[in-house]
């Protein structure tokens, strides 16, 4: 299964809906998407991972890279994920402390620091 990406704007947030498998082959597409959004001035991102079937360390690397980019513009990158098998990878790597992880897009969009 390939990676699917779609973006929409909600207020001052940009929601990136990701579906499929994020691995060494597909992660570059997600990286390009995040880089493009930041280059276009979207600094508050919400990455919706509810339809992600697989995520590996390459995908984590891309998300961390995205976070670095938005932070350079005092922006934010929030994740939406309820899937235990995906959340487990964030826990193993300690990244639950790095990313705000929300249970719904609404919650992530409404969140402020």
């Amino acid at each position: 299964m390939d990676l699917s990406l779609s973006t929409r704007t909600v207020g001052d947030r940009t929601v990136v809906e990701v579906g499929g498998e994020i691995d060494v082959y597909t992660a570059p597409k997600l990286r390009e998407q995040l880089v493009e959004l930041v280059n276009d001035g979207s600094y508050h991102l919400v990455v919706d991972m509810e339809r992600v079937d697989f995520l590996d360390s390459t995908g984590l690397g891309v998300l961390v890279g995205g976070l670095k980019r938005v932070r350079a513009h005092e922006g934010s990158l929030r994740l939406v994920c309820n899937q235990e098998r995906i959340l487990k990878i964030f826990r193993i790597t300690g990244l639950t402390k790095v990313f705000p992880i929300h249970t719904s897009v609404d919650e992530a969009v409404a969140a402020t620091d």
Binding site: D56, S57, T58, L60, G61, G65, I89, I92, T93
Partner: peptide, 17 residues
């Protein structure tokens, strides 16, 4: 070095799993 840190993250995931 992105390649090297990815490599380390991969090993970290394996040893955690």
């Amino acid at each position: 070095d992105a390649a090297e840190s990815d490599d380390e993250m991969g090993l970290a995931v394996i040893s955690g799993l």
